[in-house]
Amino acid sequence: MIASVFYFLSFVSIFFAVMVVVSKNPVHSVLYLILTFFSIAGHYLLLNAQFLALVHIVVYAGAIMVLFLFVIMLLNLNAATEPVKSSLMKFAGAIAGGSLMLVLIAVLSKINSIQPAHEVNTQIGLIKNLGKILFTEYNLPFEVASILFLVAMIGTVILAKKNPHTS
């Protein structure tokens, strides 16, 4: 039962991810990407990580992709304004992507023989356990990440703010 749900979700996420790249219309690409995020949220649910699944939907599907869609709708991209890519670029892209896939396949083909280093707590994804472990065991990385976000936020404000001397 769980396995078939997993295979279905995997098929859906890979299918939509391919459609993101293949579809000609940028708005369609963004919509397929949203569906990909939803199927990934489904994977989180399978891993018993409800908090992560919902935060994933709120942050990625609900906020970031809305901004993506926003910009693409305002730019009004269509076939006429599409930048022409040289065949050299396409060739380089194919080689880079292909070698990445080769490495990933080489690594993941041995996945069956890899055992988890220690006992995995299946209840760790529930919000209570996650909160406790974030504020005790992983307190330092958590705070560092928070400071990183704060710096990024202030940086955005400064970049967006007009310089009174130049304007």
Binding site: Q50, L54, V55, I57, V58, G62, V66, L126
Partner: peptide, 15 residues
């Protein structure tokens, strides 16, 4: 156990 967050997720998707 994350009901409030669920409401947020649905609201943010409804846009």
């Amino acid at each position: 156990n994350i009901g409030v967050l669920y409401v947020f997720a649905v609201v943010s998707v409804s846009v």
